[in-house]
Nucleic acid binder design. Structure first.
Lengths: 104, 104
DNA sequence: CAGAATCCAAAAGGATACTG
DNA sequence: CAGTATCCTTTTGGATTCTG
């Protein structure tokens, strides 16, 4: 039951889901992600991308061009995770009002 | 898209899911939870229980007995969340090896 | 362009002692 | 039994500066 936390640590942090959601619509480069995800710092974008890539949820492709181009994309594994996450997003969307009502 | 974080903040922290999972098998009292969830501190158990209760995911029932008895249980809302979480747990269980293999 | 490095602030969480 | 209260450590994340 502890492996769950290891993945929740990846999914539950501040930015991972945003990045995964952003890439769900197709591959994107570093700067594009930065613009797509308002408020993310370079440090966190870089850091989170690396974690997700290390876990095999994202792929990173660097093209030897000038200026350099690096594209990130969901791997099949990452796509699978996104499906799960979408379920959760759906549930949250359905029950968000209820939760907010309780909170107040 | 920001309401997702609000729920992930609740689901993705260190203990919430453990508590929800423990209560999925039925109502439980404070001390039982403490024993069911190894490693949790009193501070965190209390704190997390309160958050979950405030969000309406758990109910808290205090019986006026001596010694005092307090039971926590999943609300229908909390039960619904647990269904989602179970999906995720299932997916993680299925792909954990793959993720771990990538990590190394 | 796509980062790496450093430093710092805030938040989360643990340990311990105490209480109605 | 079911918590509070306080203090402290660890973790997370942001700001800034610099580079291949």
């Amino acid at each position: 039951m502890d492996f769950i936390r290891q993945v929740l640590d990846r999914v539950g942090d501040k930015w991972s889901m945003r990045i995964v959601a952003a890439l769900a619509s197709g591959p994107m480069r570093y700067t594009d992600l930065q613009r797509q995800i308002p408020g993310i710092s370079q440090r966190m974008l870089t850091h989170t991308l690396r974690q997700l890539t290390e876990d095999g949820l994202l792929s990173r492709t660097a093209y030897a061009e000038v200026p350099p181009r690096v594209e990130y994309a969901l791997t099949p594994l990452g796509g699978g995770l996104y499906e799960i996450v979408k379920h959760m997003i759906g549930w949250v969307a359905d029950h968000h009002d209820e939760i907010r009502a309780n909170r107040s």
